[in-house]
Design a protein around this nucleic acid. Structure first.
Length: 196
DNA sequence: TTTAAGATGCCC
DNA sequence: GGCATCTTAAAC
């Protein structure tokens, strides 16, 4: 318990992995203790044929290159004032990634509250991809890290009873890819982000 | 070197 | 609905 999952876990087909990640724990070891959240919402991005993905048509740049590594690496990027975090999926050379969109706080909640500031109450602590990275103190320095290694790692958790899928959030100019049902979340969990 | 746009969140 | 404010990529 609370130990990094075996690296082979990430070698599932991308959509399968996106579903299996629901209920897993994401853990960040800090000097002040462990910050732990349960993943309740994910989104898959499959570069080669996904117009909404940064790696569409295998575009390889400084930003997207980590997605060409083997599954389990950390892909971080900046969105306006926020850091968003992904799990690289697919075999070497196939630039897939899974965005972690929301978590439910499990341990270290007081520290998460401090990291977020006073305005974040209740579900607003971690119900969005930019919010959870701030709560967990995740920054761009984890670009290229591996999710099976401390101090930032995935651990076994609690599989959800019911999983819902639907269109991804915040995709507007990607034509047919706009409606791909590649968003997965735990039914009735209050920390799932709002659709826009 | 300059400029535009973005897988968001907070405030008005 | 506006705007903050950072990284990247593609235009000059």
């Amino acid at each position: 318990m609370y130990q990094p999952i075996e690296p082979s876990f990430f070698q599932l087909p991308t959509l399968e992995l996106a579903k299996k990640l629901l209920g897993k724990f994401i853990i960040h070891d800090q000097p002040t203790g462990k910050l732990i959240g349960k993943i309740v919402e994910t989104e898959a991005y499959m570069g080669p044929k996904d117009k909404a993905a940064h790696s569409y048509q295998n575009r390889k740049t400084k930003r997207t290159k980590v997605m060409f590594e083997d599954a389990g690496h950390v892909y971080t990027y900046q969105m306006h004032t926020h850091t968003l975090i992904n799990i690289v999926a697919g075999p070497v050379g196939v630039p897939h990634a899974i965005l972690i969109r929301a978590i439910e706080p499990i341990a270290g909640i007081e520290q998460m509250q401090k990291n977020r500031g006073l305005h974040a109450k209740g579900v607003n602590l971690t119900n969005g991809p930019g919010k959870l990275t701030k709560a967990l103190n995740i920054t761009m320095e984890y670009y290229g890290h591996h999710w099976a290694k401390k101090p930032l790692y995935i651990a076994k958790g609690i599989a959800p009873e019911h999983i819902i899928c639907g269109p991804r959030v915040g995709i507007h100019n990607s034509e047919e890819a706009t409606l791909y049902p590649w968003r997965f979340f735990e039914q009735d969990n209050p920390f799932v982000s709002k659709f826009r």
